[in-house]
């Protein structure tokens, strides 16, 4: 009788221990999943920030080039019309001065913005890549929830962040030359 009772208690203890082990494992997975989701959100934010900096840099460069082209055309008009343009449009020199001033101020803005981008991109873009990578890893380990959509989304973010990093390296190294 006592032997049976002891065996029953042993079996119960083993079951309790294995259940506790299972719950500890599940808790670890839940924490990993939570961290994965936070890192996924952070990677999305940093990728958007990197994308915005790249797009703004490209847009300001395009505007600067367009402004330069307009100025060149305005100067060419003087040569082509042999100065008659000053008679047709009396305020022509004023227009040229305005365009030139806008270009000077925009070049100052570009250099300032360029400095800012150069300062922050080595931090934010690699951070976006690291966060996306960590989130994918953590979410893959969490078996308590279905994270397929988030894993796919983080993978897309990872690819975009890598493309941004390459684009920034190309843009900034091109600018340095």
């Amino acid at each position: 009788m006592r032997k049976d009772e002891a065996q029953q208690i042993d079996e119960l203890t083993i079951e309790k221990n294995s259940l506790e082990n299972a719950s500890v494992k599940e808790m670890r997975m839940l924490h990993l999943g939570h961290f994965g989701k936070i890192f996924s959100n952070l990677s999305i934010f940093f990728t958007i920030l990197s994308l915005a900096s790249v797009l703004t840099l490209i847009m300001t460069l395009v505007l600067f080039l367009l402004g330069g082209a307009v100025l060149l055309i305005l100067l060419m008009v003087i040569v082509v019309t042999l100065g008659i343009i000053f008679v047709i449009i009396p305020n022509y020199w004023g227009i040229i001065t305005t365009v030139a001033n806008a270009l000077t101020s925009s070049s100052g803005y570009i250099s300032k913005f360029g400095e800012l981008v150069v300062k922050i991109w080595p931090v934010i873009t690699p951070l976006a890549i690291v966060f996306a990578g960590i989130s994918i890893l953590f979410l893959c380990f969490d078996k308590t929830q279905n994270h397929t959509i988030r894993i796919v989304f983080s993978s897309v973010v990872l690819v975009i962040a890598i493309i941004i990093l390459i684009a920034l390296i190309v843009l900034l190294s091109g600018g340095a030359k």
């Binding site: 808790m27 924490h31 936070i38 959100n41 308590t144």
Partner: peptide, 29 residues
């Protein structure tokens, strides 16, 4: 069974950690 994350032993510490890592809860779930 389905466990709840909040039922973990050191739940306060875990949630404070989440709060700081998610930049003061902005990027938390």
């Amino acid at each position: 069974y389905k466990h709840l994350e909040i039922k973990s032993k050191l739940y306060i510490l875990w949630y404070i950690l989440y709060f700081f890592i998610s930049i003061f809860g902005i990027f938390d779930v």
